[in-house]
Design a protein around this nucleic acid. Sequence first.
RNA 1: GGAGAGGUGGCUGAGUGGUUGAAAGCGGCUCCCUGCUAAGGAGUUACAGGAGGCAACUCUUGUCGAGGGUUCGAAUCCCUCCCUCUCCGCCA
Length: 427
Amino acid sequence: MLDPREIRENSSFIEKGLGRRGLKVDLTSLRNHSKRLKELENQRTKLQAEGNSIGKEVGVKIRTGCEPSSDEVMLLKNKGNQIKTEVSLIEEEERTLAKSIKDQILHYPNIPYSDCPDGKGEIDNIQIRTWGTPLKGEGYKEHWQIAEELCLLDTERSVRIAKSRFVTLLNHGAKLERSLINFMLDVHTAKGYTEILPPVLVNTASLEGSGQLPKFAEESFRCSEDNLWLTPTAEVPLTSLHRNEIIPFESLPIKYVAYTPCFRREAGSYGKDTRGLIRLHQFNKVELYWFVDPANSKEAYKQITADAESILQYLELPYRVMELCTGDLGFSASSTHDLEVWLPGANSYREISSCSICDDFQARRSSIRTRKGKKTQLVHTLNASGLAIGRTMAAILENGQQSDGSVKIPEALVPYFGQAFIKAEQS
RNA sequence: GGAGAGGUGGCUGAGUGGUUGAAAGCGGCUCCCUGCUAAGGAGUUACAGGAGGCAACUCUUGUCGAGGGUUCGAAUCCCUCCCUCUCCGCCA
């Protein structure tokens, strides 16, 4: 959430920032409403102070022997009633005003960093580095073809179970998925991350707190009977793990790693990536999440990105790092580095991790603070996929494919997977 | 699903209409003592908003699950909602 005070006092900065995302926003009326709200608050506070002192006066008079029905007391009571009426009128105006202000602010995304490249969309993202040597050439199969040949998944029967865009992993496919989850969790916990296994049904406040609501309701699955949602990413429960908390300063940074299934409705993506493991309603992900002292967040951003990259390096998967332009930035992020893995079958790079710094945007929405000296201060939050499991499997299948139809498993994963190759006859 | 209990400060737990933002204890912090010593003493210890002082700070409003209501005045009375716990039933 943007800072309401900043909107009152520095609205042109906010307008420019949102403008860089391609949003034409005029904050004049919001700013005026916000100022008006402050005025009303001040007025009400003064009246309440007056009312309180009258109340005390009445109490003192009655205790010192005044008749409750004496003129003296009645006069004060009337005054009190009068104030009460005035206060309730002000409160009513405040309520409507505050609600409309909050509704608007919650719809505004985070302000991009000044060094975030300007741009309209994906094509304006900037490649900042690459790792590994991409396999290029004719004859590489796409992962879904390999998976079908090796009987690692069943798409058609998944429609029977659920609907399209769901997948059932079979045999070595299921085991590969599981071994990837374990491998990633082990790598990250060895680096000092605390492992978390959170609920994947989350309430509305949690989604609002991390920025998925109110704007992206159509992207999440909802259990309307219970007013809960299926989490679209572990970022949501992990943010809410400390919602409405003041985290002791010495506990920072807090570094969590969580494996969760993730659920997305993928509204509007009909026809895209219809085969295989790339775009599903349900997929597995290992997520990294940091709560940090704002003074250290830039450094943390580098580190969390490096931690996500390390998985790709262990798995010997070539990738590039893209800096997202302002037009492609997610709602809560100030800056994002996407990791894109090379898929030789698809002959393209494909997003496999998104590493974002959100500054105090989520912390303000979720009220997560720390105490520095006497003052409380919002923390900064960061998140990174470390990694999306299904896409990692796709990358392993495509990069490890052999001319005999088998797939070579990256060495680092062999202890988890139990064998160095997946071969057709085994499946 | 049935029956009941309850939501108060970092924690335990008092508090049924008037200096109660809240007793007491624990914990935390600061200082003192150092022959009651695997101790003792004194003080302090919520959050948010606003006004004023460069500042330590002062004043003020709101908050005792949330929202309404009654009242000059509510943690305390009334209503609605949410949540938690216990027992029974069912169940991975």
